[in-house]
């Protein structure tokens, strides 16, 4: 009896502490994105100095610079494009793979499964180096394609796993029933199985997209001189100065605020839908 009264409180305190832990770097990032010289027009030689600790003045300088920064925009675009394609392809291929693995028997299935998960067990450094060697071997110059292919190869097992997990909770007799009722396997897949899988697909995308968007280790080996992603650009900007440029902080803040709004919105929408349906 006693247990039940204090456990929730303890858990609550612990939970809140975890949110503090997770958000501490984010808060410093947001704060420092507004730290700048009083005169916003002033040319600053070493912007990184404004992220090192001392508070100077409240300034929107870095936000202004962000929107004028051609290279940053390009890098953001590149990261976004790679992540979008990588998620699309890996979700498509991963779903197909998971479906086949779950529903079919085929020759070499055991081996296939073992190989499928190997990328998950290989540290990014090794994946990066080995795929780099391979791309050199076939003569594919580093750039969009090398990054995308490596990201897809790494995301497929991840997506497959998440979707397999979802498949275990699906009532597969529904598929058989649909096919008994005359649906071909495509229709059954599309009309019956796909809607049931949707949460899994969504979850897989939610894992794979930020992973690809933010991947540094693999991309570090595979990016070309003309194709920088955002993490690579941040790395080279921060590497020699030891601190992230405040322009990056302003971008980070915008991404944070943007995703908060996106999630808030989706919850609002879901809330309305749930209300429409009555209690879930």
């Amino acid at each position: 009896m006693k247990f039940r009264s204090w456990t929730p409180k303890l858990l609550l305190i612990f939970g809140l502490l975890m949110y503090v832990f997770v958000y501490m770097p984010m808060v410093t990032l947001v704060i420092y994105s507004f730290n700048g010289p009083e005169d916003e027009e002033r040319r600053v030689r070493f912007p990184w100095i404004y992220t090192t600790g001392e508070w100077h003045d409240f300034s929107l300088k870095w936000y202004k610079e962000l929107f004028d920064d051609r290279d940053m925009k390009k890098a953001f675009q590149n990261s976004f494009t790679v992540a979008l394609w990588s998620v699309t392809l890996s979700v498509l291929l991963g779903t197909m793979t998971a479906y086949t693995l779950y529903r079919r028997k085929f020759w070499g299935k055991g081996l296939f499964e073992q190989v499928l998960y190997i990328p998950l067990f290989m540290p990014g450094t090794i994946v990066g180096v080995s795929t780099l060697m391979f791309f050199r071997f076939i003569g594919l110059p580093r750039g969009f394609w090398t990054i995308l292919l490596a990201h897809v190869a790494f995301s497929i097992p991840l997506v497959t796993l998440v979707i397999l997990a979802r498949m275990q909770r699906i009532n597969w007799t529904l598929e058989e029933a649909a096919m008994d009722l005359g649906a071909n396997q495509f229709t059954a897949l599309r009309k019956v199985i796909f809607p049931l899988l949707r949460p899994g697909i969504f979850a897989a995308g939610l894992l794979a997209f930020p992973w690809s968007f933010n991947d540094f280790v693999i991309t570090f080996f595979l990016h070309g001189p003309k194709y920088n992603t955002l993490p690579i650009m941040i790395y080279s900007m921060a590497g020699r100065s030891g601190a992230v440029s405040p322009v990056i902080n302003s971008l980070g803040t915008l991404i944070l605020v943007g995703s908060l709004m996106l999630i808030g919105l989706s919850f609002l929408l879901q809330g309305q839908r749930d209300q429409g349906k009555g209690k879930p």
Binding site: M18, V22, L29, P210, A238, N249
Partner: peptide, 23 residues
């Protein structure tokens, strides 16, 4: 609540790691 934990990982990993240096 789950989303709020994952959310920071949507901003660059490098930026957050560098933020830890200063914390």
């Amino acid at each position: 609540l789950i989303f709020l934990i994952i959310l920071p990982s949507w901003t660059s990993y490098l930026v957050r790691v560098y933020a830890w240096v200063f914390l």
